[in-house]
Amino acid sequence: MPATPPPSLKGRGARSNATGRYEKQVRETFDDGWEPSEPDQPPTPLKTELQPDRSRTIIARNDSPDIGFERSINPYRGCEHGCTYCYARPGHAYLGLSPGLDFETRLFFKADAPRLLQKELSRKGYRPERIHIGGVTDPYQPIERKLKITRQVLEVLERFNHPFSIITKSDLVTRDVDIIGRMAARDLAGTYISVTTLDRSLARAMEPRAATPARRIAAIRALAEAGVPVGVGFAPVIPGLNDHELEAVLEAAAEAGARSAMYVTLRLPLEIKDLFQEWLAEARPDRAARVMSLIRQSRGGKDYDAQWGSRMKGTGPVADLVGARFAAACKRLGLNREPRTVDLTQFRVPGAFSAQMDLFA
Results as ranks from 00 to 15, higher is better:
residue 263 Y to V: 00
residue 281 A to E: 12
residue 262 M to R: 02
residue 302 K to Y: 14
residue 278 E to I: 06
residue 295 I to D: 05
residue 278 E to C: 11
residue 271 E to S: 13
residue 276 F to T: 02
residue 272 I to F: 10
residue 307 Q to K: 04
residue 265 T to D: 03
residue 263 Y to E: 00
residue 289 A to H: 13
residue 289 A to R: 14
residue 288 A to M: 10
residue 307 Q to H: 03
residue 288 A to G: 09
residue 303 D to S: 10
residue 290 R to D: 12
residue 270 L to D: 14
residue 272 I to V: 15
residue 264 V to C: 01
residue 295 I to R: 02
residue 287 R to K: 11
residue 290 R to I: 11
residue 304 Y to I: 01
residue 273 K to H: 15
residue 283 A to F: 05
residue 300 G to I: 12
residue 266 L to F: 07
residue 273 K to N: 13
residue 280 L to N: 01
residue 281 A to N: 10
residue 283 A to S: 07
residue 303 D to V: 02
residue 293 S to W: 14
residue 285 P to G: 06
residue 306 A to W: 10
residue 269 P to V: 05
residue 306 A to V: 05
residue 266 L to W: 07
residue 296 R to Y: 05
residue 288 A to R: 06
residue 266 L to P: 04
residue 291 V to P: 08
residue 284 R to Y: 12
residue 281 A to P: 03
residue 281 A to I: 02
residue 286 D to L: 02
residue 264 V to H: 00
residue 278 E to M: 13
residue 282 E to V: 11
residue 282 E to I: 09
residue 296 R to Q: 11
residue 267 R to E: 10
residue 296 R to F: 02
residue 301 G to N: 09
residue 281 A to G: 04
residue 299 R to I: 07
residue 289 A to T: 13
residue 285 P to C: 03
residue 272 I to D: 08
residue 305 D to I: 01
residue 291 V to M: 12
residue 292 M to I: 04
residue 303 D to T: 08
residue 277 Q to N: 12
residue 290 R to K: 11
residue 292 M to S: 11
residue 280 L to R: 01
residue 284 R to K: 15
residue 299 R to S: 10
residue 267 R to N: 05
residue 272 I to C: 13
residue 281 A to C: 06
residue 301 G to W: 05
residue 263 Y to M: 00
residue 304 Y to S: 03
residue 297 Q to H: 05
residue 271 E to L: 04
residue 302 K to P: 06
residue 266 L to A: 11
residue 271 E to F: 09
residue 278 E to F: 13
residue 288 A to K: 08
residue 282 E to F: 12
residue 273 K to S: 12
residue 295 I to F: 07
residue 295 I to C: 06
residue 272 I to W: 10
residue 302 K to I: 07
residue 264 V to W: 00
residue 304 Y to L: 02
residue 276 F to W: 10
residue 270 L to W: 15
residue 283 A to P: 02
residue 295 I to A: 09
residue 263 Y to W: 08
residue 305 D to Q: 09
residue 302 K to V: 06
residue 273 K to E: 15
residue 286 D to N: 05
residue 263 Y to S: 00
residue 267 R to S: 06
residue 290 R to C: 14
residue 300 G to E: 15
residue 295 I to Q: 07
residue 264 V to E: 00
residue 300 G to T: 08
residue 307 Q to N: 07
residue 272 I to P: 01
residue 306 A to E: 12
residue 305 D to K: 07
residue 279 W to C: 08
residue 268 L to D: 04
residue 287 R to S: 10
residue 278 E to L: 15
residue 273 K to C: 09
